[in-house]
């Protein structure tokens, strides 16, 4: 299993990670190695096996616990925005979002 540069660019675009042309070739080689490793799973017959999504779903009867509908969170905007790269009037600033 190996990836071509176009696939690398597509994945990098989806993941929003800039990959230069020079890096793309290295990335392709290294990802292909990892995909070779995980390709070993393909031969296993898993017919009729339920996917296991949680570490405990084989063990505990796992059901989602629910929270009571109560608004309990205080306004902590100042503290939460202390680490923000750019804010104005309480809003997080980003380059113009195009619709």
């Amino acid at each position: 299993m190996s990836l071509d540069l176009e696939q690398i660019r597509r994945i990098a675009r989806l993941a929003r990670i800039a990959v230069s042309d020079a890096e793309a070739a290295d990335t392709a080689a290294s990802l292909s190695g990892v995909l070779g490793l995980i390709g070993e799973m393909q031969a296993v017959d898993t017919t009729g096996i339920e996917p296991m999504a949680h570490a405990l779903d084989a063990q505990v009867s796992s059901a989602q616990r629910l929270r009571e509908d109560k608004a309990v969170e205080p306004d902590r905007r100042t503290a939460y925005q202390a680490s923000a790269p750019a804010v104005q009037d309480g809003l997080y600033l980003v380059p113009r979002v195009v619709e």
């Binding site: 750019a86 809003l91 600033l93 980003v94 380059p95 113009r96 979002v97």
Partner: peptide, 12 residues
């Protein structure tokens, strides 16, 4: 996303 009043930026 709010687009007014932020000099070409959007406010979230």
């Amino acid at each position: 996303s709010l687009h007014e009043d932020f000099k070409g930026l959007s406010g979230i």
